[in-house]
Simulated assay, not measured.
Amino acid sequence: MSKDEKLAQEVKAWRAKGGFTAEAAAKVLGIPKRTFEGIEQGRGFPYPALLRVAMESKTLSLQAMPEESHRVDWRQKPGRSV
C-alpha cells in the first residue's frame, strides 16, 4: 500500500467516524472540497503530517463542543443576537 493510499484510508475513516459529508469535512479542515475528494481518492496531499494533525485537532475540538454550540441559526443576521 502506498503512502497516498494509506492517507486516503485514514481520511475516509476519520470522516466516517465523525459522520461528515465530504463538503463538511473539507470545511472543517479548511481545504477545498475538490482537494479533500482527491485525498480520499488516493491522489495524495503535499503535507500529510499536517493533515493528520488537523484531523486530530478538529476531532477533539468538535467532541469537546456542546451539541448546540456548533449549530448555526441561519435566520439570525450577522452581528445581532437573538
Rank of each mutant, 00 (worst) to 15 (best):
W14Q: 00
R43D: 07
E37H: 01
K17C: 04
S2P: 09
V82S: 13
A13K: 14
F45P: 04
M65L: 15
A54D: 09
T35F: 00
K58P: 02
I39K: 05
G30H: 06
K58D: 03
A25P: 06
L50I: 08
K12W: 03
R71P: 00
A54Y: 02
Q41M: 04
A54V: 04
E67F: 11
L62G: 02
P48E: 04
T35G: 00
S57G: 00
P48W: 01
E67Y: 09
E67T: 13
K6Y: 02
G44R: 04
L50G: 15
E23V: 08
H70G: 00
L7I: 06
R43T: 07
L62Y: 07
I39F: 04
M1F: 10
A8Y: 04
E5L: 13
R43M: 07
G18E: 07
P48R: 03
K77V: 13
R43V: 03
E56A: 14
D4N: 14
G38P: 06
V72M: 09
E23F: 02
F20N: 06
E40N: 03
P78N: 08
T59W: 08
R71K: 15
G18Q: 09
D4P: 00
Q76G: 05
I39V: 15
A54E: 11
L60D: 14
E56N: 10
V82Q: 14
A22Y: 03
R80A: 13
Q63P: 00
F36K: 02
A13C: 04
L60Q: 15
R43I: 02
S57Q: 11
P48I: 01
E56M: 05
T21E: 05
A8V: 03
G42E: 08
A24C: 00
I39D: 04
S57D: 09
A25D: 11
G30K: 07
L29W: 07
I31V: 15
T59M: 07
A8G: 03
T35D: 01
L29P: 01
E5S: 12
E23W: 01
D4E: 14
P48F: 04
A13H: 12
